[in-house]
Design a protein around this nucleic acid. Structure first.
Length: 418
DNA sequence: ACTCCACAGGAATTGAGGGGTG
DNA sequence: CACCCCTCAATTCCTGTGGAGT
């Protein structure tokens, strides 16, 4: 007896739905690709690269389009021996300062040069920049630096100024660098200093959200590869496309939805054995819950304790609660858990963090000279969901059984579910 | 129209932890 | 080893704010 099986009534292969799948064509982005290619074209003639800024919400093909065009461009450039092109793709998701970007960039370049990585901290800033320019000169030729999710760089924008100006400033002599910045925050550009805006935004491209018909054709193409024939109701793709278009216009979201619906159809026969609208609706709920659950689970211990405070206050019917009252609960929980307590100021930061993630609802109130100005917080997710998440968390997990019991006593939890 | 409350939240600072060089 | 650099959470200090009450 084994738990493994190759039998799968739905999926021929799951590959087209995986995050790392790279589609071979991008029919829905022809206009954008044309414009993008125009901006890159000077490189092929041996001219210095333009700096390009690409805007568009998550999942509208910015990164895929970039990878496609750059590999095509590289291929063409290789045909001319007077053009030497190197491109480096750096995701700035976890990088908040120019320093970190520079350090990671150096390692990308050193990797290509076959050199060992450098530590990503420790050096004085100027030294780091010198190392960056040195390795860029060593690579030589035209160097395109793709900074994906560039809006995560919030501390300073130094590097966005230094790299485009490197040639003019004599920092490099053997190469011509260009930056391609990719961002899903339309306001990011405004936050840049004027000098940077000036140097960096030679070309700007906008990737619009996908409209339903585009999402439908994307989904159709992928599902033909992934699914067996006739395992899906006709209305399924339009429904996934409609949901995603209304929400984010993101192909990623649409694909995830369809993927999840397929999984549900395979693993749970209660809704029938072909993918139907019910599966899509269930998939949507499931995905949303997973996202919240995951977000809550992966908070820091302090975040967990603050969330616990709100769970407890909810059980005591004391929400929405003022920061001051939450702080008292927070202190008592921290004491029982024997965890160091934070100041109120710091705890409010955690509260806001939770509110930003959508776990809490936050409202500013003002009662004049009677109560002054204050914030009210309440849980913004199902109590059960919060309990599920906290149960898997270090430190606070021991409290949850007690909370469950209280909740059950008060008939707050829907006990049919477990 | 003006006051005044109680807190939100910005700014500066600290301290611990990652690392470097000579 | 002594001394330096960058980062980030947390603390400390303090200014800003909006409307009920006068």
């Amino acid at each position: 007896m084994t738990r493994f099986s190759r039998e799968d009534p739905i999926f021929r292969t799951e590959r087209p739905f995986r995050e790392d799948y790279e589609p071979t064509t991008l029919h829905e982005r022809e206009d954008e690709l044309d414009e993008y290619a125009d901006a890159l074209n000077p490189i092929i003639k041996g001219d210095p690269p333009k700096n390009i800024f690409i805007y568009g919400k998550a999942g509208v093909g910015k990164t895929v389009a970039t990878k496609h065009l750059l590999s095509d461009l590289k291929e063409q450039a290789d045909k001319y021996n007077d053009v030497s092109l190197s491109a480096f793709h750096l995701s700035c998701r976890h990088l908040t300062s120019s320093y970190q970007v520079a350090a990671h960039l150096i390692n990308k370049i050193r990797d290509q040069l076959g050199k060992d990585s450098i530590p990503i901290t420790g050096y004085p800033t100027q030294k780091l920049y010198d190392m960056l320019f040195d390795s860029m000169d060593e690579i030589g030729g035209t160097i395109l630096i793709v900074l994906d999710e560039i809006d995560h760089i919030t501390k300073d924008d130094d590097i966005l100024y230094s790299i485009p100006r490197a040639t003019a400033n004599g920092d490099v002599s053997n190469c011509e660098p260009g930056i391609i910045g990719i961002s899903n925050d339309f306001k990011f550009q405004e936050s840049l200093s004027p000098e940077v805006q000036d140097t960096l935004c030679d070309e700007q491209l906008n990737f619009a959200p996908y409209i339903p018909s585009q999402l439908r054709s994307i989904l159709k193409r992928r599902s033909e590869k992934a699914f067996f024939d006739d395992v899906m109701d006709e209305a399924v793709i339009p429904q996934c496309a409609a949901i995603a278009a209304k929400d984010t216009g993101s192909a990623r979201q649409a694909l995830r939805l369809l993927y999840k619906a397929g999984e549900l159809a395979r693993d749970d026969n209660s809704l029938g054995d072909t993918i139907s609208n019910e599966h899509v609706t269930a998939a949507q709920t499931k995905l949303e819950q997973n996202k919240l659950l995951d977000g809550m689970r992966t908070l820091t211990t302090y975040g967990h304790i603050v969330l616990c405070s709100l769970v407890q206050l909810t059980l005591e019917s004391k929400t929405p609660a003022k920061t001051k009252d939450i702080y008292e609960t927070y202190l008592s929980i921290s004491e029982t858990l024997d965890v160091k307590t934070l100041t109120k100021r710091r705890m409010t930061d955690h509260l806001q963090e939770l509110a930003r993630h959508g776990f809490l609802d936050r409202e500013i109130k003002n009662s004049g000279s009677v109560e002054g100005r204050y914030a009210l917080y309440k849980l913004n997710v199902d109590l059960e969901l919060a309990l599920d998440a906290l149960e898997q968390a270090d430190k606070v997990s021991n409290l949850i059984a007690g909370y469950r019991a209280t909740a059950e006593d008060r008939g707050i939890l829907d006990t049919t579910r477990r």
